[in-house]
Amino acid sequence: MTPELITFILLASIAVASGLGMLFSRNAVYSAIYLIINFITVAVFYLLLGGAFIAVSQVAVYAGAIMVLFLFVIMLLGAEKLGRSGDTLPWQRPLAIILGLGLVAETLYILFFQAGELVALKDLPEGFGSPSSVGSVLFQEYLLPFEVTSILLLVAMIGAIILTRQEKKNAGR
């Protein structure tokens, strides 16, 4: 076994274990912490693939900013203990099982019948995954999708601000 393979198996088992831990933990704070571990493991995967920029962004954005907000909300609401009774969407569980099985079937199909098309990258091009190469691809080839995404995010942000303002006005009455 090559060192890369050992690292991969080790990381993959951590990723799967933390994913399962996140799903099955009865305490929302533990779930969030498992998810953070999962995000950091994925970032290390990106590093192994030579994508330093996306790895660090993954840690800064997902493991950092977003999960801090998750934890913040969980703690602020005191919602860490999951009640068994509060199942308000009874149709959700069967639907989730069907969709999940569909996803697993699709993945297995691709893995066993189309795996030949996946080619391992042997020689990375010069500057692969560096901030400047990511930037030039993002701002030249994919400028339109990038701008559309930014506008979408901006609208979501303004929406969130307006929603909280509305609440304040009602409370004042």
Partner: peptide, 18 residues
């Protein structure tokens, strides 16, 4: 000396709160 050094600083600052 990595080409994402400054980004690394922000990433570590982001997880420092936990």
């Amino acid at each position: 000396d990595v080409n994402v050094g400054v980004l690394y600083l922000t990433a570590v600052a982001a997880i420092a709160v936990y």
